[in-house]
Design a protein around this nucleic acid. Structure first.
Length: 874
DNA sequence: CCTTTCACG
DNA sequence: ACGTACGTGAAAGGC
């Protein structure tokens, strides 16, 4: 007989976890499904990974438990279960049943106690037990047979607590977790513990005395006066807390191991339930026919010739691409729709149609696009131009809520309650199985996307209206989409020879460094593998690990720099990493991206970042090296695409701090910028209380770090890391800063309060970002949301400004009939290529346009440079 | 596919 | 007492 393996799941805890980890989803009947979906994913992964012979899901019985007779306020102050979750519990139970898994609950007891009792019985019977929960309390049950898995992040990422792991992490045994809770309490269960004692102190006490009982027996040995006092006055509370935290392992349960046989799931029931819940991706995995969500009947016409009567004054348009790169992948066809008709136009028909060309290029006919930038670029490849774009579903959804948009029509549509489109995955398949469907299915899919845009236009427009974001959408993002499309299609000329020459030199140096490293290590190994490198540095050589990652020793640069004086191998590794990065990401990576026209065509993601910035992909041209000279040379490969032209680059100076000055209305900060002061020096003068002459380079460096921190939503820890000082010192720095810039302090407090009250923060041009975690009881999530509340209006307003400048710049170049082309945007800078004759004009208009695009209460300042390559624009 | 590392603003 | 600075994308290793 094979060895028994029992999996015990904490139903309530996992359902809560699933609910909060996933965005709200609904099926077509309006029932929320996110917790059920998350629970399903957990079950599937756990069953897959653990392959148990026996399984049980334990549930909490009800509101009152035997613990309440000890302490009536046990679990008091908890928020009511949200109704969106409550309605899902019956489905979770059905699901568990369909999976062929037993479930059990017991009056007056919690799921913990059922799990505790069973795991004791099983481990006494020498069976292997795996416990799954989101509640760390259960780790007290870990022993040689029993592993406790606690959800870490998301829904399927579990941290495994074995006695060894607990020892490494806390330095105590599993049962001492109870003592730890007794001392520190547990806010989420309303267990009081001893005031003033947190995790750190609790662990210190336990390492010394072993248990709560022993702490009190040896109470006279404790010298810290305040702590001793707290312990003494709260003795009863400490013992009660320990009692509350103790899981009952002798609960009067009526199930036993024999009842928990796991025979596998009932496929039919599972499929039935998945269909009801519309878990289409899971159905596909089962090879079950996906229930097509009651798609509204629409008549679709595949046309072999575009005629004038088809094309009306206003239509929606979707250009379908085979893959995501609309600059290179083949164009599969165009969908067009209005209130009466929906068409699919195959690419060959579209490409040769003069009628279509005329309509597309007409500024007077309005187009509602699914993704106007991709449509613009793809249509450009057919030798036509797209004009008259009046709506863009992807952009509009992104403006309404930047966390919405994944770029897929089906998904965006769903988030606005429209279910008439299939997902691309359902039509094309995924990964290696991806393929083109039959012509008819393709036509229908493309046409349905166009139709979805048509249907959603009024819905999303109304939302924009309600949010007062019509202007942001129509005046900023929509015109910008076309400009970005133009930039992408234009591309940047790249000199492969330059890249190869640099690459050659790098390879030679890397080979030498590699040899040195092997010699110093005494063996060959893969330097690029953090795992292997960790073994060499921290086990073989015996250096002291400074930081750990989830999987082992950290070998990140900041760690290695601290070890630089310990062993000469370190500096070689750092150099190897630095040069290796240049070689793989930039030399090899960029070389592969040069098209036949000798140019690199990046794509700007306009509906992705949570702050309103752009991002750049395939390749990323927003992170070309500059800080170190060796990397900066890469920029010499980016050159003008015409002979006798030059590169011209202009960047905003300190735009984020200027934005901060404007939105915080801090008088001192505004004054500093009005005077044209060096802002870091000025900050140093205020923080250190010295005159300008007395600011030394260290003070300025510290002030600069503080300024960065302020923009990021400062924390003492973050600043301490960046300046390599203690947290206390960092905290004092921050206090001094905020005391001398009271307007900034006020802004920080106001943005957090604002986010709490409204649920979102906004930028100057009314871009929004929702911050649901701002009210979380989880310290980390809440702190993160608070920093985001401070940072997003700053970073986002800066993004608004440069976007507007791009629109103004494009118009100005057009107006003055210049040949200059805008090529790239790198968050606070714009890069152009230009005929040398236009240089003098650019020196005037580029800074003028960028500085005047929006009037703030501080001046905007732009620096510019030019040269024969991007490298020379410095 | 996830994690780690590192390039940019 | 929490163990991270804000926002990104790409490459490599390893499961």
């Amino acid at each position: 007989m094979t060895k028994k393996k029992i999996v015990l799941l904490d139903g309530n805890s996992l359902a809560y976890r699933a609910f909060f980890a996933l965005p709200l989803l609904t099926n077509d009947k309006g029932i929320h499904t996110n917790a059920v979906y998350g629970f399903t994913m957990m079950l599937e992964t756990i069953l897959d990974n653990e392959k148990p012979t026996h399984v049980l899901v334990a549930w909490d019985a009800g509101k009152t438990t035997f613990r309440h007779s000890t302490f009536t306020e046990y679990k008091g102050g908890r928020q009511k279960t949200p109704p969106e979750l409550s309605e899902q519990f019956p489905y979770i139970r059905k699901l568990i049943e369909a999976f062929g898994i037993e479930q059990y609950e017991l009056d007056l007891y919690e799921a913990d106690d059922i799990i505790g009792t069973l795991s004791r019985e099983c481990s006494e019977a020498k069976a292997e037990v795996v416990i799954i929960s989101g509640d760390k309390d259960l780790t007290q049950l870990a022993n040689e047979q029993t592993t406790v898995c606690i959800t870490r992040k998301g829904i399927t990422d579990l941290e495994k607590y074995t006695p060894q792991h607990i020892e490494e992490k806390y330095g105590i045994e599993p049962l001492q977790i109870i003592d730890m809770k007794g001392l520190m309490g547990d806010a989420s269960d309303n267990i009081p513990g001893v005031p003033g004692i947190g995790e750190k102190t609790a662990l210190k006490l336990l390492k010394e005395y072993g248990s709560v009982e022993n702490v009190y027996q040896s109470i006279d040995q404790i010298t810290a006066k305040k702590m001793k006092e707290n312990l003494v006055t709260n003795k009863e509370q400490a013992f009660m807390s320990k009692e509350l935290a103790t899981i009952e392992v002798h609960a009067p349960i009526e199930v036993s191991l024999a009842d928990l046989d796991f025979a596998g799931r009932n496929e039919e029931e599972v499929i039935q339930l998945y269909k009801e819940l519309q878990f289409n991706s899971l159905l596909e995995k089962l090879d079950a026919p996906v229930e097509v969500q009651h798609l509204e009947e629409i008549e679709i016409q595949t046309v072999d010739e575009v005629t004038a009567d088809m094309l009306t004054d206003t239509m929606s348009i979707h250009v379908e691409i085979d893959g995501d790169n609309y600059l290179s992948a083949s164009i599969l066809g165009i969908g067009l729709s209005n209130e009466t008709n929906t068409y699919f136009v195959p690419t060959n028909v579209a490409a040769s149609s003069a009628v279509l060309k005329e309509w597309l290029e007409d500024h007077a006919t309005l187009k509602y696009a699914s993704d106007s930038k991709s449509a613009y670029a793809a249509i450009a490849r057919l030798g036509m131009e797209l004009n008259g774009t009046d709506f863009d579903l992807m952009l509009a959804a992104y403006i309404v809520n930047p966390s919405f948009s994944t770029g897929e029509v089906a998904e965006i549509a769903r988030s606005f309650g429209y279910h008439g489109v299939k997902s691309d995955e359902a039509v094309f398949g995924k990964g290696a199985k991806r393929s083109l469907p039959a012509a008819e299915q393709l036509a229908e899919h493309v046409a349905r996307k166009a139709h979805a845009v048509w249907e959603l236009y009024p819905v999303v427009s109304k939302q924009l209206e309600e949010n007062e974001q019509q202007e942001l959408f129509h005046e900023l993002e929509l015109p910008l989409a076309k400009i970005l499309g133009k930039m992408e299609v234009t591309g940047v000329k790249t000199d492969l020879d330059v890249l190869q020459t640099i690459g050659q030199q790098l390879s030679e140096r890397l080979a030498l460094i590699e040899k040195d490293i092997y010699e110093m290590a005494g063996e060959k190994f893969n330097i690029n593998s953090p795992k292997q490198l960790g073994v060499i540095l921290f086990e073989k050589i015996g250096l002291t690990p400074i930081k750990k990652t989830k999987t082992g020793y950290s070998t990140a640069a900041d760690v290695l720099e601290k070890l630089e004086n310990e062993h000469e191998i370190i500096q070689h590794i750092l150099l190897y990493r630095q040069l290796g990065k240049l070689n793989s990401t930039y030399i090899d990576g960029l070389s592969k991206e040069i098209h036949e026209d000798g140019k690199i065509h990046t794509r700007f993601q306009q509906a992705l970042t949570q702050t309103g910035r752009l991002s750049s992909i395939n390749p990323n041209l927003q992170n070309i090296p500059i800080r170190l000279e060796e990397g900066r040379k890469i920029r010499a490969a980016f050159i003008p695409s015409e002979p006798e032209w030059i590169m011209f680059a202009a960047d905003y100076s300190q735009i984020e701090l200027r934005v901060l000055a404007h939105i915080s209305q801090d008088e001192k900060l505004i004054e500093a910028f009005k005077q044209g002061a060096d802002i870091h020096t000025k900050t140093a003068m205020d923080v250190f209380g010295v005159s300008e002459e007395d600011v030394d380079s260290n003070m300025r460096r510290a002030a600069k770090a503080v300024n960065f921190g302020i923009v990021y939503g400062i924390s003492d820890y973050g600043l301490s890391q960046s300046l390599n000082i203690t947290r206390k010192e960092a905290g004092e720095f921050i206090d001094t800063y905020l005391a001398s810039f009271p307007g900034v302090k006020q802004y920080m407090d106001d943005s957090i309060a604002d986010a709490k009250q409204k649920g979102y923060v906004t930028t100057l041009l009314n871009r929004r970002r929702y911050l649901p975690d701002i009210t979380s009881s989880n310290f980390n999530l809440r702190s993160f949301a608070e920093r985001t509340a401070m940072n997003t209006p700053i970073q986002g307003t800066a993004a608004d400004i440069i976007k507007k400048a791009m629109i103004d710049m494009d118009a100005r170049l057009e107006k003055e009939q210049l040949q200059t082309r805008m090529l790239l945007q790198v968050h606070d800078e714009l890069i152009f290529e230009a005929p040398v004759e236009e240089l003098e004009r650019l020196k005037e208009i580029v800074p003028e346009v960028m500085e005047q695009t929006l009037q703030l209460d501080v001046p905007l300042k732009v620096d510019w440079n030019h040269g024969k390559s991007w490298y020379e624009t410095k």
